[in-house]
Every structure is written in C-alpha cells, then in structure tokens.
C-alpha cells in the first residue's frame, strides 16, 4: 500500500526539523494518536514536538479530525499546534 505523507507545521515543524516526510503506512486500525506516540520515540526533536499530544491537532486529507481518528486509507496526515488564525 502507498506510503503515508506526514506534514508538520509551526513549532512542530521547527522541533522536528522538516516540513514533510513519507512513512510506511501504519497497521490497519492505527489511530493518529497511536502513530504520534510511535513517532515521539524517534528521538530528540520528535519527542519534543510530539511528546505532549494535548498540544497537538491534526488533519487527515485536509480535514480537521480528532486525534483518536483511525488513519485508514488517508494519503496525507498533518500534525500541528492549535491554529492561531489571521
């Protein structure tokens, strides 16, 4: 199955040090929160950016969704802090 593209924004992007990456598609039934917990174990920047999921919001294929949403067949996951508008 195709890889999953993850986009990072704002301080999440700064801490991780990249704006996007492709990862192997997680197992069927994996939620965004579960993937975030897994990514957070990758090391410094990831732990700093993703260690506190309370501060994070997400979008799947450009739609805001709660973190307990199952990733399923989505192509693009975005992880970011709460938006601060215009």
């Amino acid at each position: 199955m195709a890889a999953l593209t993850i986009l990072y924004f704002a301080w999440v992007r700064e801490a991780i040090g990249r704006d996007e990456e492709k990862v192997e598609r997680p197992e069927t039934g994996t939620s965004i929160a579960e993937l975030i917990a897994k990514l957070a174990t990758r090391g410094d920047g990831y732990a700093q950016a993703l260690g506190d999921p309370e501060k994070l919001r997400a979008a799947l294929d450009q739609k805001f969704v709660p973190l307990d949403t199952i990733i399923g067949e989505a192509k693009e996951l975005a992880i970011f802090p709460p938006v601060t508008g215009g």
């Binding site: 924004f9 704002a10 979008a59 970011f80 802090p81 938006v83 601060t84 508008g85 215009g86």
Partner: peptide, 8 residues
C-alpha cells in the same frame, strides 16, 4: 478566520 483558518 481568526479561530479556524489553518494559520500559525
């Protein structure tokens, strides 16, 4: 826009 637009 101030609260929901995806801007940081």
């Amino acid at each position: 826009l101030k609260s929901h637009a995806p801007f940081w």
